[in-house]
């Protein structure tokens, strides 16, 4: 099963469950209050997913290391390398 199919089938199953509950297809006969909670669930799901995405992205952005020392080290080594290579006879 491709990743696309996995996503589609998961969403389909969730949608069917939600539809069953909203339309009360199983005739469970629950209260109007319960129905009012069930009805906007997909919107909640969407909002939660969106917040999760933004939150995660922001956190990862904030924790994205700036490798200053790595760059400094590289610059030093480049100079060392240039000197050593020149002494070994490299002509650029």
């Amino acid at each position: 099963m491709t990743k696309l199919e996995q996503w589609m089938s998961t969403l389909l199953v969730l949608m069917l469950i939600w539809l069953c509950l909203v339309q009360d297809l199983l005739n469970l006969g629950y209260s109007k209050k319960f129905h009012d909670v069930i009805l906007p669930l997909p919107v909640y799901l969407l909002v939660t997913a969106g917040s999760y995405a933004l939150g995660t992205l922001g956190l990862r952005l904030a924790n994205f290391n700036d490798c200053e020392e790595a760059a400094q080290e590289l610059f030093m080594q480049i100079q060392e390398a240039q000197a050593d290579l020149a002494s070994k006879g490299l002509i650029l």
Partner: peptide, 19 residues
């Protein structure tokens, strides 16, 4: 791990694409 020499825009694109 990390990067050097990337501005905020580049980081956002990279992190977004990765996410």
């Amino acid at each position: 791990g990390g990067v050097y020499g990337w501005d905020l825009k580049r980081k956002i694109v990279s992190r977004g694409a990765n996410f």
